[in-house]
Design a protein around this nucleic acid. Structure first.
Lengths: 244, 244
DNA sequence: CCTTTGTAACATGTTAGCATGTTAGTGTGG
DNA sequence: CCACACTAACATGCTAACATGTTACAAAGG
């Protein structure tokens, strides 16, 4: 059993359940197992670098090893776990290279999407965006940061959905996975949420003007702010990062 | 056993081997199986819509059902196969929607990449591109179309690699999967290869000028040409397509 | 005390067989 | 002839157990 020398010893605690029960999800056992594990990893229920024992997952979810192996293979393909054959499976640690790459991809996708939709955005679509921003404003007043991030994500997803490309949201989310996982480790920065809201408002204004160039620039500026907060994380928490 | 009513009956021929042997690949049996199957699907060794029996794959590769199931799960997550639980697993047919979306994604990624590298492209990188185009020129003279497409793909991969983002080539390739599978069904169009070469040369000129806007426009034009040839394919070969 | 070797514990990989659901074909009844 | 029910064949899903490789720890030797 592998112990990574730069990680604290991992005790076999009688684990508090960390995986949502499978009856919460649709599909085959393997598919359900994948969804439950993925969710837990994305929400940092497992620490980056932590050992994931297939046996423990089987016990917690009440399934045998095959569906768990299938699920792990998919998560490995997504870069969310690292499988060391015959030795251990670890929750992937953050990687600044992957974070940068994910941010690049998401930016490429979102800028292309907003450029595509801006010239011909419908009044209906603008109404939806305005509503979302109205809710964001209320959440900022209430200092409800979790709620705000949810609406933030919804706004981005909405813009992608306006392209009519069905999988684009998924692809962008996949690109954002590693960034988003790390983001949860960054303490809230005073003023950042208010600034984010202003950036969203500027994007809306550009879309209302149906100006693709303006929209691109405002969105690009907005997307690039998060990286400025993630970069110090590697210094503060090297244990969570792969040595790139 | 599922028979799709719009597909010809599928006979159980003693199959000519269609999968590359597993000793060609590294890693676990499951990973090797995945690679061999993926390659076969991408090269259209299996017809879109064709039934893939896990049992036949097990027999051909000489492995049991678990590694095959893992491999199929990964391919399903990539959209290369459709699994109908308890009934059958089918090679994914082309989908014009997925093709369009793949082309959009690839364009977004490649345009972002070329915009990023153009201002500071090195002489060494330009040398590599010039070499590639020199070989392309020779292949066009020799009417070696397969060779030409290989150099075409290498040129695109090269540009992506200049970003320094390690997975970008993979991600762009994933986006291009469905497009590329369909492309193989399009007969060579007279003059298209020569036109492609000219487009490549125009991209190189823009990069030599370190002009990101010009490079973007030349690359965008180039990438959009292929779609003009793919659109009629759906009319000519509806059997290969999902009804989107 | 340090190094090397051997072994047990640990974890994943894979196989063989049972469980479950789907589909096609056949037979029976109206 | 057509519709329905039943059954066998087909295909995948999953489990239990064996196979294989890794790692940590203990013991022996220098």
């Amino acid at each position: 059993m592998l112990q990574r020398p730069d990680v604290e010893p991992q005790e076999r605690t009688p684990a508090a359940p960390r995986l949502r029960k499978l009856d919460s999800f649709p599909g085959s056992l393997a598919a359900r197992t994948y969804q439950s594990l993925r969710e837990a990893i994305l929400h940092l229920a497992y620490r980056p670098g932590e050992l994931l024992r297939k046996g423990d997952i089987c016990a917690e979810l009440g399934v045998s090893r095959s569906p768990v192996s299938e699920a792990i293979a998919r998560l490995a393909a997504e870069g969310l776990v690292d499988v060391v054959p015959q030795a251990g499976t670890f929750v992937a640690r953050f990687s600044m290279a992957e974070i940068r790459e994910g941010a690049f991809l998401r930016e490429a996708i979102e800028l292309a999407a907003i450029e595509m939709i801006a010239p011909a955005i419908t009044e209906e679509q603008l109404v939806q965006l305005r509503r979302n921003i109205r809710v964001q404003e209320a959440l900022v007043e209430d200092a409800d940061f979790a709620g705000f991030y949810k609406l933030d994500a919804e706004m981005h997803a909405m813009i992608l959905s306006f392209t009519g490309y069905r999988k684009l949201g998924q692809v962008a989310e996949s690109a954002w996975l590693h960034v988003n996982r790390a983001r949860q480790q960054v303490l809230p920065v005073p003023g950042r949420v208010a600034a984010t809201l202003e950036e969203h408002q500027a994007i809306l204004v550009a879309l209302e003007a149906r100006d693709p160039d303006r929209a691109r620039e405002e969105l690009r500026w907005h997307l690039r702010q998060l990286m400025t907060f993630l970069v110090p994380l590697e210094r503060e928490r090297p244990d969570l990062f792969d040595p790139d």
